[in-house]
Amino acid sequence: MTHEFDNLKAIVTGGASGIGAAAVQRLRALGASVAVLDLNPAGAAEGTEALRCDVSDDASVAKAVAAAADRLGGLDVVVNNAGIGAQGTIEANPDEEWRRVLDINVLGIVRVSRAALPHLRKSGSAAIVNTCSIAATAGLPQRALYSASKGAVLSLTLAMAADHVREGIRVNCVNPGTVDTPWV
C-alpha cells in the first residue's frame, strides 16, 4: 500500500504532546518517517526518533536538527509547532515574559527553519508548516502577548514563503482555534 508521504522525512517540534503529537500521528499514518524535537521527548510516539530540543537555544536546535536529518537520512518536512501561551492584557505580563514568549514562539521558528534549510534545499518535496493560531487574526480578550507572538508567526510565514518559493520550499501556516491540549 502506498501512502502520500512514503519516503518523506519530517521533524515536528513540540511533537510529544498536543497539536504536535497529532501532527506526528498524521504524518506517520501518511507514511512519513518522523523525528520529534521536544523539551521532553519522553512522550514521543513509539517508532519516532525522539530528540531533546530547546527551541530557545540555537546550539540545542542545531544539534537536534542535524541529528534528526542524520537519523532520518535527510529532511523534507518541518513542522514548527513548539510554543507557549500567555494570558492577560498588555499590562499583565512584564517585559521578561514578553521576551520569553516571543523568543520561543517566533525565534524558535527562525532557529529551527534556519537549521533545516540546508537539508530542505536537497529535497524535491520541501515544506515548512508553522503552527500559528486564530489569535493571529482575531482579537481575543486576555491574550495580548500570545496574540502578538502569533501575529508575528503569520507575518514571518508569509515572508518565508516569498523568500523560499523559488527554491521549491513551500512555507505555510495553520491557524487552529482552541484545542484540548495540556496548555488549555
Results as ranks from 00 to 15, higher is better:
residue 133 S to V: 08
residue 184 V to G: 13
residue 183 W to I: 15
residue 19 I to R: 02
residue 25 Q to Y: 04
residue 122 K to T: 05
residue 143 R to G: 09
residue 39 L to K: 14
residue 89 T to A: 09
residue 132 C to Q: 08
residue 165 V to M: 06
residue 137 T to M: 11
residue 105 N to E: 07
residue 62 A to W: 07
residue 95 D to S: 13
residue 67 A to Y: 05
residue 182 P to H: 01
residue 37 L to A: 11
residue 102 L to D: 05
residue 51 L to D: 06
residue 6 D to F: 05
residue 5 F to Q: 05
residue 174 V to R: 00
residue 176 P to I: 05
residue 61 V to F: 07
residue 161 A to G: 13
residue 88 G to W: 00
residue 115 A to E: 07
residue 103 D to Y: 07
residue 130 N to S: 04
residue 87 Q to D: 03
residue 53 C to H: 09
residue 87 Q to I: 08
residue 83 G to H: 09
residue 119 H to T: 06
residue 37 L to D: 08
residue 164 H to S: 08
residue 95 D to I: 14
residue 125 S to M: 12
residue 111 R to V: 01
residue 56 S to Y: 12
residue 30 L to N: 14
residue 85 G to Y: 02
residue 149 S to I: 10
residue 136 A to F: 05
residue 94 P to L: 07
residue 148 A to Y: 01
residue 118 P to Q: 00
residue 26 R to N: 10
residue 158 L to G: 12
residue 105 N to Q: 10
residue 12 V to M: 04
residue 84 I to Y: 07
residue 46 E to C: 02
residue 37 L to S: 11
residue 2 T to I: 15
residue 22 A to H: 00
residue 22 A to L: 02
residue 86 A to C: 00
residue 153 V to L: 07
residue 25 Q to H: 13
residue 149 S to G: 06
residue 26 R to A: 14
residue 25 Q to I: 05
residue 172 N to H: 04
residue 183 W to R: 15
residue 133 S to A: 06
residue 106 V to T: 13
residue 131 T to E: 06
